[in-house]
Design a protein around this nucleic acid. Structure first.
Lengths: 151, 151
DNA sequence: CTATTTGTAACCTGCCTGGTTACTAATTGG
DNA sequence: CCAATTAGTAACCAGGCAGGTTACAAATAG
Protein backbone atom coordinates (compact mmCIF):
# COMPACT_ATOMS: atom_id res chain seq x y z
CA UNK A 1 0.00 0.00 0.00
CA UNK A 2 2.29 2.69 -1.24
CA UNK A 3 -0.28 5.44 -0.88
CA UNK A 4 -1.01 4.80 2.77
CA UNK A 5 1.99 6.79 3.88
CA UNK A 6 0.75 9.84 2.01
CA UNK A 7 -2.74 9.36 3.37
CA UNK A 8 -1.36 9.08 6.91
CA UNK A 9 0.54 12.34 6.54
CA UNK A 10 -2.57 13.98 5.14
CA UNK A 11 -4.62 12.85 8.12
CA UNK A 12 -2.13 13.96 10.74
CA UNK A 13 -1.44 17.22 8.97
CA UNK A 14 -5.11 17.97 8.66
CA UNK A 15 -5.79 17.16 12.30
CA UNK A 16 -2.91 19.42 13.25
CA UNK A 17 -4.34 22.26 11.19
CA UNK A 18 -7.67 21.86 12.99
CA UNK A 19 -6.18 21.97 16.47
CA UNK A 20 -8.02 19.38 18.53
CA UNK A 21 -11.37 19.40 16.77
CA UNK A 22 -12.36 15.82 15.86
CA UNK A 23 -12.78 15.12 12.15
CA UNK A 24 -14.83 12.28 10.67
CA UNK A 25 -13.35 9.79 8.27
CA UNK A 26 -15.86 11.00 5.73
CA UNK A 27 -14.42 14.52 5.77
CA UNK A 28 -10.85 13.26 5.74
CA UNK A 29 -11.62 10.96 2.84
CA UNK A 30 -13.23 13.74 0.84
CA UNK A 31 -10.37 16.16 1.35
CA UNK A 32 -7.85 13.55 0.32
CA UNK A 33 -9.89 12.15 -2.52
CA UNK A 34 -10.59 8.58 -1.51
CA UNK A 35 -13.30 6.54 0.18
CA UNK A 36 -14.02 6.55 3.93
CA UNK A 37 -13.29 2.84 4.22
CA UNK A 38 -9.86 3.13 2.69
CA UNK A 39 -9.15 6.01 5.01
CA UNK A 40 -10.32 4.10 8.06
CA UNK A 41 -7.92 1.32 7.23
CA UNK A 42 -5.14 3.86 7.58
CA UNK A 43 -6.68 5.35 10.72
CA UNK A 44 -6.81 1.88 12.22
CA UNK A 45 -3.05 1.48 11.94
CA UNK A 46 -2.40 5.01 13.18
CA UNK A 47 -4.58 4.30 16.19
CA UNK A 48 -2.71 1.11 17.01
CA UNK A 49 0.48 3.16 17.00
CA UNK A 50 -1.08 5.76 19.28
CA UNK A 51 -0.79 8.53 16.72
CA UNK A 52 -4.53 9.22 16.68
CA UNK A 53 -7.47 8.63 19.01
CA UNK A 54 -10.95 7.94 17.69
CA UNK A 55 -14.48 8.12 19.04
CA UNK A 56 -17.52 6.57 17.41
CA UNK A 57 -21.05 7.86 17.20
CA UNK A 58 -22.58 11.28 16.82
CA UNK A 59 -19.96 14.02 16.96
CA UNK A 60 -17.24 11.40 16.77
CA UNK A 61 -14.11 11.31 14.71
CA UNK A 62 -10.35 11.34 15.12
CA UNK A 63 -7.93 13.59 16.95
CA UNK A 64 -4.16 13.55 17.38
CA UNK A 65 -2.89 11.02 19.89
CA UNK A 66 -0.12 13.37 21.00
CA UNK A 67 1.18 16.82 20.01
CA UNK A 68 2.20 17.12 16.37
CA UNK A 69 5.63 18.26 17.49
CA UNK A 70 6.13 14.83 19.04
CA UNK A 71 5.23 12.82 15.94
CA UNK A 72 7.96 12.30 13.38
CA UNK A 73 7.43 11.23 9.79
CA UNK A 74 9.31 8.08 10.75
CA UNK A 75 6.64 7.30 13.35
CA UNK A 76 4.05 7.48 10.59
CA UNK A 77 6.17 5.38 8.27
CA UNK A 78 6.66 2.53 10.72
CA UNK A 79 3.01 2.65 11.75
CA UNK A 80 1.87 2.14 8.16
CA UNK A 81 4.55 -0.13 6.76
CA UNK A 82 3.95 -3.73 7.72
CA UNK A 83 7.24 -5.22 6.68
CA UNK A 84 10.07 -2.85 7.45
CA UNK A 85 11.10 -2.90 3.80
CA UNK A 86 10.02 -0.24 1.42
CA UNK A 87 12.71 -0.74 -1.15
CA UNK A 88 12.47 -3.49 -3.72
CA UNK A 89 13.90 -6.44 -1.90
CA UNK A 90 14.19 -9.50 -4.08
CA UNK A 91 12.43 -12.36 -2.37
CA UNK A 92 13.83 -15.25 -4.34
CA UNK A 93 14.63 -18.77 -3.43
CA UNK A 94 16.96 -19.51 -0.56
CA UNK A 95 19.54 -21.13 -2.82
CA UNK A 96 21.26 -20.50 -6.11
CA UNK A 97 23.32 -17.72 -7.60
CA UNK A 98 20.36 -15.39 -8.00
CA UNK A 99 20.04 -15.32 -4.23
CA UNK A 100 23.69 -14.32 -3.77
CA UNK A 101 23.31 -11.39 -6.15
CA UNK A 102 20.04 -10.37 -4.54
CA UNK A 103 21.66 -10.34 -1.11
CA UNK A 104 24.45 -8.15 -2.42
CA UNK A 105 22.06 -5.62 -3.91
CA UNK A 106 19.82 -5.71 -0.89
CA UNK A 107 22.79 -4.67 1.19
CA UNK A 108 23.23 -1.55 -0.90
CA UNK A 109 19.53 -0.81 -0.84
CA UNK A 110 19.44 -1.30 2.92
CA UNK A 111 22.04 1.43 3.29
CA UNK A 112 19.91 3.78 1.24
CA UNK A 113 16.81 2.87 3.18
CA UNK A 114 18.54 3.50 6.49
CA UNK A 115 19.49 6.95 5.28
CA UNK A 116 15.89 7.59 4.26
CA UNK A 117 14.56 6.55 7.66
CA UNK A 118 17.06 8.76 9.45
CA UNK A 119 15.90 11.63 7.34
CA UNK A 120 12.25 10.93 8.10
CA UNK A 121 13.07 10.92 11.79
CA UNK A 122 14.29 14.50 11.61
CA UNK A 123 10.98 15.93 10.42
CA UNK A 124 7.97 16.30 12.71
CA UNK A 125 4.35 16.58 11.62
CA UNK A 126 4.39 20.09 13.06
CA UNK A 127 7.27 21.06 10.78
CA UNK A 128 5.67 19.47 7.77
CA UNK A 129 2.40 21.21 8.51
CA UNK A 130 4.02 24.63 8.74
CA UNK A 131 5.71 24.06 5.40
CA UNK A 132 2.77 22.81 3.38
CA UNK A 133 -0.20 24.43 5.12
CA UNK A 134 -0.31 27.47 2.82
CA UNK A 135 -0.36 25.36 -0.31
CA UNK A 136 -2.89 22.95 1.15
CA UNK A 137 -5.21 25.81 1.98
CA UNK A 138 -4.87 27.20 -1.52
CA UNK A 139 -5.68 23.83 -3.02
CA UNK A 140 -8.69 23.38 -0.77
CA UNK A 141 -9.91 26.86 -1.68
CA UNK A 142 -9.59 26.02 -5.36
CA UNK A 143 -11.56 22.79 -5.12
CA UNK A 144 -14.21 24.55 -3.07
CA UNK A 145 -14.59 27.12 -5.79
CA UNK A 146 -15.16 24.36 -8.27
CA UNK A 147 -17.89 22.92 -6.10
CA UNK A 148 -19.55 26.32 -5.81
CA UNK A 149 -19.37 26.85 -9.53
CA UNK A 150 -21.11 23.52 -10.08
CA UNK A 151 -23.91 24.18 -7.59
CA UNK B 1 10.23 -5.08 -13.52
CA UNK B 2 11.95 -5.06 -10.19
CA UNK B 3 13.91 -8.23 -10.91
CA UNK B 4 15.47 -6.97 -14.12
CA UNK B 5 18.14 -5.09 -12.24
CA UNK B 6 19.22 -8.26 -10.48
CA UNK B 7 19.15 -10.20 -13.73
CA UNK B 8 21.25 -7.54 -15.40
CA UNK B 9 23.88 -7.74 -12.68
CA UNK B 10 23.84 -11.52 -12.95
CA UNK B 11 24.44 -11.35 -16.68
CA UNK B 12 27.27 -8.84 -16.49
CA UNK B 13 28.86 -10.57 -13.53
CA UNK B 14 28.70 -13.92 -15.26
CA UNK B 15 30.17 -12.56 -18.48
CA UNK B 16 32.96 -10.99 -16.46
CA UNK B 17 33.70 -14.29 -14.77
CA UNK B 18 33.96 -15.95 -18.18
CA UNK B 19 36.36 -13.39 -19.59
CA UNK B 20 35.33 -12.75 -23.18
CA UNK B 21 33.77 -16.11 -24.02
CA UNK B 22 30.26 -15.57 -25.46
CA UNK B 23 27.41 -17.09 -23.48
CA UNK B 24 24.00 -17.98 -24.87
CA UNK B 25 20.82 -16.63 -23.36
CA UNK B 26 19.86 -20.22 -22.67
CA UNK B 27 22.84 -20.74 -20.38
CA UNK B 28 22.40 -17.37 -18.69
CA UNK B 29 18.72 -18.10 -18.13
CA UNK B 30 19.42 -21.49 -16.64
CA UNK B 31 22.07 -20.20 -14.24
CA UNK B 32 19.79 -17.43 -13.05
CA UNK B 33 16.68 -19.54 -12.93
CA UNK B 34 14.40 -18.00 -15.50
CA UNK B 35 13.41 -18.44 -19.15
CA UNK B 36 15.57 -17.46 -22.13
CA UNK B 37 12.95 -15.03 -23.40
CA UNK B 38 12.79 -13.12 -20.14
CA UNK B 39 16.55 -12.95 -20.12
CA UNK B 40 16.69 -11.70 -23.68
CA UNK B 41 14.38 -8.88 -22.76
CA UNK B 42 17.01 -7.75 -20.28
CA UNK B 43 19.83 -8.35 -22.76
CA UNK B 44 18.01 -6.20 -25.27
CA UNK B 45 18.10 -3.20 -22.96
CA UNK B 46 21.69 -3.83 -21.97
CA UNK B 47 22.63 -3.94 -25.63
CA UNK B 48 20.91 -0.64 -26.36
CA UNK B 49 22.99 0.88 -23.57
CA UNK B 50 26.17 -0.62 -25.03
CA UNK B 51 26.84 -2.75 -21.97
CA UNK B 52 26.80 -6.03 -23.94
CA UNK B 53 27.29 -7.05 -27.55
CA UNK B 54 25.45 -10.00 -29.07
CA UNK B 55 25.89 -12.27 -32.05
CA UNK B 56 23.25 -14.61 -33.44
CA UNK B 57 23.63 -18.01 -34.95
CA UNK B 58 25.83 -20.98 -34.19
CA UNK B 59 28.45 -20.19 -31.60
CA UNK B 60 26.68 -16.90 -30.88
CA UNK B 61 25.82 -15.30 -27.57
CA UNK B 62 26.62 -12.20 -25.57
CA UNK B 63 29.85 -10.62 -24.39
CA UNK B 64 30.64 -7.48 -22.42
CA UNK B 65 30.37 -4.27 -24.39
CA UNK B 66 33.30 -2.77 -22.50
CA UNK B 67 35.61 -3.77 -19.65
CA UNK B 68 33.81 -4.64 -16.41
CA UNK B 69 35.89 -2.04 -14.63
CA UNK B 70 34.22 0.61 -16.78
CA UNK B 71 30.65 -0.43 -16.04
CA UNK B 72 29.10 0.90 -12.85
CA UNK B 73 26.03 -0.49 -11.16
CA UNK B 74 24.44 2.85 -11.96
CA UNK B 75 24.97 2.21 -15.66
CA UNK B 76 23.05 -1.03 -15.28
CA UNK B 77 20.35 0.65 -13.27
CA UNK B 78 19.67 3.39 -15.80
CA UNK B 79 19.80 0.91 -18.67
CA UNK B 80 17.06 -1.21 -17.11
CA UNK B 81 14.87 1.38 -15.45
CA UNK B 82 12.53 3.02 -17.93
CA UNK B 83 11.23 5.83 -15.79
CA UNK B 84 13.99 7.28 -13.67
CA UNK B 85 12.00 6.61 -10.51
CA UNK B 86 12.49 3.53 -8.45
CA UNK B 87 11.08 4.78 -5.21
CA UNK B 88 7.34 4.89 -4.69
CA UNK B 89 6.44 8.22 -6.13
CA UNK B 90 2.84 9.12 -5.68
CA UNK B 91 1.34 9.78 -9.07
CA UNK B 92 -1.87 11.52 -8.10
CA UNK B 93 -3.91 14.16 -9.80
CA UNK B 94 -2.42 17.50 -10.68
CA UNK B 95 -4.66 19.37 -8.25
CA UNK B 96 -5.91 19.10 -4.71
CA UNK B 97 -4.32 18.79 -1.29
CA UNK B 98 -3.20 15.22 -1.88
CA UNK B 99 -0.92 16.47 -4.61
CA UNK B 100 0.70 19.01 -2.31
CA UNK B 101 1.49 16.34 0.26
CA UNK B 102 2.74 13.97 -2.40
CA UNK B 103 5.08 16.63 -3.77
CA UNK B 104 6.46 17.21 -0.29
CA UNK B 105 7.14 13.53 0.30
CA UNK B 106 8.50 13.06 -3.17
CA UNK B 107 11.06 15.70 -2.36
CA UNK B 108 12.32 13.69 0.59
CA UNK B 109 12.28 10.49 -1.41
CA UNK B 110 14.15 12.17 -4.23
CA UNK B 111 16.94 13.01 -1.81
CA UNK B 112 17.16 9.39 -0.76
CA UNK B 113 17.07 8.18 -4.33
CA UNK B 114 19.85 10.55 -5.32
CA UNK B 115 21.98 9.15 -2.52
CA UNK B 116 21.25 5.63 -3.72
CA UNK B 117 22.24 6.44 -7.29
CA UNK B 118 25.45 8.07 -6.13
CA UNK B 119 26.24 4.94 -4.20
CA UNK B 120 25.55 2.72 -7.21
CA UNK B 121 27.89 4.88 -9.26
CA UNK B 122 30.77 4.07 -6.94
CA UNK B 123 30.63 0.32 -7.53
CA UNK B 124 31.84 -1.26 -10.77
CA UNK B 125 30.83 -4.66 -12.10
CA UNK B 126 34.44 -5.69 -11.63
CA UNK B 127 34.28 -4.85 -7.92
CA UNK B 128 30.97 -6.57 -7.47
CA UNK B 129 32.27 -9.65 -9.27
CA UNK B 130 35.32 -9.91 -7.03
CA UNK B 131 33.10 -9.69 -3.96
CA UNK B 132 30.44 -12.20 -4.89
CA UNK B 133 32.29 -14.58 -7.21
CA UNK B 134 33.23 -17.05 -4.47
CA UNK B 135 29.68 -17.37 -3.23
CA UNK B 136 28.28 -17.59 -6.74
CA UNK B 137 30.66 -20.43 -7.54
CA UNK B 138 29.66 -22.27 -4.41
CA UNK B 139 26.00 -21.89 -5.25
CA UNK B 140 26.53 -23.09 -8.82
CA UNK B 141 28.46 -26.05 -7.52
CA UNK B 142 25.64 -26.91 -5.15
CA UNK B 143 22.97 -26.79 -7.83
CA UNK B 144 25.13 -28.84 -10.14
CA UNK B 145 25.41 -31.50 -7.44
CA UNK B 146 21.65 -31.56 -7.18
CA UNK B 147 21.36 -32.10 -10.92
CA UNK B 148 23.88 -34.94 -10.77
CA UNK B 149 22.06 -36.53 -7.88
CA UNK B 150 18.84 -36.50 -9.85
CA UNK B 151 20.32 -37.95 -13.01
C1' DC C 1 -34.59 3.89 20.64
C1' DT C 2 -32.69 6.25 16.78
C1' DA C 3 -29.30 8.53 14.17
C1' DT C 4 -24.64 8.85 13.46
C1' DT C 5 -20.13 7.30 13.05
C1' DT C 6 -16.45 3.95 13.31
C1' DG C 7 -14.53 -1.18 12.67
C1' DT C 8 -13.86 -4.68 9.65
C1' DA C 9 -14.63 -8.53 6.78
C1' DA C 10 -15.49 -9.91 2.10
C1' DC C 11 -15.41 -9.29 -2.50
C1' DC C 12 -14.31 -7.10 -7.08
C1' DT C 13 -11.39 -5.00 -10.52
C1' DG C 14 -7.44 -3.21 -12.93
C1' DC C 15 -2.60 -3.20 -13.26
C1' DC C 16 1.89 -5.02 -13.28
C1' DT C 17 5.33 -8.59 -13.35
C1' DG C 18 6.90 -12.64 -14.97
C1' DG C 19 6.23 -16.54 -17.90
C1' DT C 20 5.08 -18.96 -22.29
C1' DT C 21 4.21 -19.51 -27.17
C1' DA C 22 5.13 -18.58 -31.69
C1' DC C 23 7.21 -16.79 -35.29
C1' DT C 24 11.03 -14.12 -37.78
C1' DA C 25 15.92 -12.86 -38.61
C1' DA C 26 20.74 -13.68 -38.62
C1' DT C 27 24.80 -16.52 -38.75
C1' DT C 28 27.67 -20.63 -39.29
C1' DG C 29 28.87 -24.87 -41.58
C1' DG C 30 28.21 -28.46 -44.92
C1' DC D 1 21.62 -23.28 -51.20
C1' DC D 2 20.18 -25.84 -47.07
C1' DA D 3 20.03 -27.06 -42.31
C1' DA D 4 20.93 -26.14 -37.66
C1' DT D 5 21.50 -22.93 -34.13
C1' DT D 6 20.79 -18.80 -31.75
C1' DA D 7 18.87 -14.17 -30.92
C1' DG D 8 14.73 -10.56 -31.48
C1' DT D 9 10.26 -9.63 -30.52
C1' DA D 10 5.40 -9.55 -30.52
C1' DA D 11 1.37 -11.49 -28.38
C1' DC D 12 -1.00 -13.67 -25.06
C1' DC D 13 -1.73 -15.79 -20.19
C1' DA D 14 -1.80 -16.13 -15.12
C1' DG D 15 -1.02 -14.87 -10.32
C1' DG D 16 -0.49 -11.26 -6.96
C1' DC D 17 -1.51 -6.96 -5.09
C1' DA D 18 -3.29 -2.25 -4.33
C1' DG D 19 -7.22 0.18 -4.01
C1' DG D 20 -12.08 0.53 -4.16
C1' DT D 21 -16.90 -0.92 -2.88
C1' DT D 22 -20.47 -3.25 -0.35
C1' DA D 23 -22.34 -4.94 3.71
C1' DC D 24 -23.02 -5.36 8.22
C1' DA D 25 -21.79 -5.12 13.25
C1' DA D 26 -20.54 -2.13 17.26
C1' DA D 27 -20.40 2.04 19.85
C1' DT D 28 -22.10 6.54 21.31
C1' DA D 29 -24.88 10.95 21.77
C1' DG D 30 -29.29 12.70 22.43
Amino acid sequence: MTSEFTIGLHVLGFLTARGGEPLTSEVLARTYGTSPVVLRRVLSKLRQAGLVATRRGVGGGSVLGRPSSEISLLDVYVALTDEPELLPRHPGENTGPAQVLAAYINGIYAEAEAALLERLATVSIEQMDSEVRPEICAALEASRLVSVARA
